[in-house]
């Protein structure tokens, strides 16, 4: 059985990726299951989706905590989420990056496929939805399913022009994906993006490392009463893929950026100017849009 975990942001189509892959496998007569991590997170928040493929019927319904392959749809996730958590030794990685792919190699990783999926998606689909693009890179790296099956799954899923464009995006990614194997890079000589991790202990593979889990039932407050303002511990800055940048010389200190921020992430400094609280800014861009003097513009968040 092959276990694949997808990391994306709400709205990028991570779940659709997993489903398309499963659909392609099923069309080939294999068995597959795809499902999302069900949660309250919204558009822009890191999410994951899972796909299992096997020649025998797949019966497991647990989340994938020791994947064979990890697919990352958004480059801003590398620093936000522990994407390689639990990745099996000699596993594979499929990533969306415009960076030199060798940097993403680490000890224990067998191979990786890298593709500038955001650019491909922007050019072909006119929006940064990278799910079908990364599937192209995935099948180039690993013959999980045939490209034709994947194309047919895309055509079944979408219709008309959207289907055609997605097929185009997938094919281009298949062509352009750069494949790196363990021996290709001298890992010692580079600044690593990922560290090799200790494999999870036997029996503990299924335990996601989430702080919530630390609570014992005896530690809960009566009625599960919660302290005020405590979401401040939840830093939503990692949802951000674009970042507001201020030009002080154009700022009239009107405060509209502050008033219209959904995340209270514009903070007035003692000098009267406003600065972005990177802990919470989700990069929505309302401040830039609403600034009456055009003092704010959005820039792409730097990749790892």
């Amino acid at each position: 059985m092959l276990e694949i975990r997808f990391h994306g942001r709400g709205g990028q189509g991570a779940v659709t990726s997993a489903e398309l892959l499963a659909q392609a496998a099923i069309e080939e007569g294999k068995y597959a299951r795809a499902f999302p991590s069900f949660g309250p997170e919204r558009r822009g928040a890191p999410v994951s989706a899972f796909c299992r493929i096997d020649d025998k019927p797949v019966t497991l319904r647990t989340s994938i905590d020791s994947p064979d392959v990890v697919v990352v749809l958004d480059p801003s996730l590398f620093s936000a989420v522990d994407v390689t958590r639990g990745l099996r030794k000699d596993g594979s990685l499929v990533i969306n990056t415009k960076k030199e792919p060798g940097r993403f190699m680490f000890h224990g990783l067998k191979q990786l496929a890298a593709v500038n999926a955001t650019q491909i998606a922007q050019e072909i689909l006119n929006r940064p939805i990278t799910n079908t693009v990364l599937l192209g890179a995935l099948v180039r790296l690993l013959p999980v399913v045939k490209v034709e099956s994947l194309i047919s799954a895309v055509q079944n899923r979408f219709s008309g022009k959207i289907a055609d464009l997605n097929v185009q995006a997938l094919e281009r990614a298949y062509e352009e994906a750069q494949i790196i194997s363990a021996g290709d890079v001298d890992i010692e000589k580079q600044v690593p993006c990922f560290q090799e991790k200790e494999p999870p202990e036997k029996g503990k593979e299924d335990k996601p490392c989430k702080e919530d889990l630390d609570y014992l039932w005896t530690e809960l407050t009566p009625g599960c009463v919660v302290q005020p303002g405590s979401t401040r511990d939840n830093l939503t800055g990692d949802w951000r893929s674009t970042l507001p940048v201020m030009q002080k010389e154009r700022c009239i200190q009107c405060g509209l950026c502050w008033a219209f921020c959904p995340d209270a992430a514009q903070v007035q400094e003692p000098d009267g100017f406003f600065s972005v609280d990177l802990d919470y800014c989700k990069g929505c861009g309302i401040c830039a849009k609403e600034c009456p003097t055009g003092a704010i513009h959005m820039e792409k968040e730097l990749e790892l």
Partner: peptide, 14 residues
């Protein structure tokens, strides 16, 4: 307080 999980650009949160 910030740290809420509303979508990026949520008008309701504003």
């Amino acid at each position: 307080a910030p740290g809420h999980r509303a979508c990026s650009g949520c008008g309701q949160a504003v």
